[in-house]
């Protein structure tokens, strides 16, 4: 039974994140004050039969560990899409 997982990817702490800064600067213009530490990353969703291999997938392809941190969130069984 496949597992549904989400991989959250964000710029590594300490690396300049101009995208996050731009968003942070834009929010007050809309009246949203008191917002700090904005970072923009990427969400990868996937169904995997063997979730124990997720870290290796992250290290080798899904992220570049030199510049990105990631977090793996398993969200339960994959929904049957009827194709099996």
């Amino acid at each position: 039974m496949a597992v549904h997982a989400r991989v959250l990817v964000k710029p590594k702490a300490g690396i300049l994140d101009p995208q996050g800064q731009a968003v942070q600067r834009a929010l007050p213009a809309l009246g949203f004050t008191g917002v700090r530490n904005v970072h923009v990353g990427r969400l990868i969703e996937l169904d995997v039969e063997d979730p124990s291999r997720l870290p290796e997938m992250c290290e080798r392809l899904l992220t570049n560990p030199l510049i990105e941190d990631y977090e793996i969130v398993e969200t339960g069984s994959a929904e049957d899409d009827g194709s099996a």
Partner: peptide
């Protein structure tokens, strides 16, 4: 760089 044949990485320009 991605292939590991060169050091480092290339990130989005500071100016975006």
């Amino acid at each position: 760089c991605e292939a590991g044949l060169l050091p480092g990485a290339l990130l989005p320009n500071t100016s975006l």
